[in-house]
Amino acid sequence: MTLTLDCLGRPCPVPVIELARALPGVEVGQTVTVLSDDPAAGPDLAAWCRMRGQAFEGGTGSSWTVRRLV
């Protein structure tokens, strides 16, 4: 079971903010999928994971997966 955040059409930093709000709601080890067509979403979600000690597991271009580690 993975949580999906639909941020399509919403510019950065919205996807990062939505992820930051949602991640505490999933268990450690679980994932969140962020849907975003903003070209900054992939790099910024990866940077946020680096800053917060979470795992950025990549994506396809408009869908990105993050795993909660802490």
Binding site: P11, D38, P39, A40, P43, D44
Partner: peptide
Amino acid sequence: GSSCTSSTLEPSHVLVAMGALTHG
């Protein structure tokens, strides 16, 4: 270098290449 400030709405390729936060 944030995307919202560029005419193309692309984030700075320099910040992306560094793995730096591009917003704000």
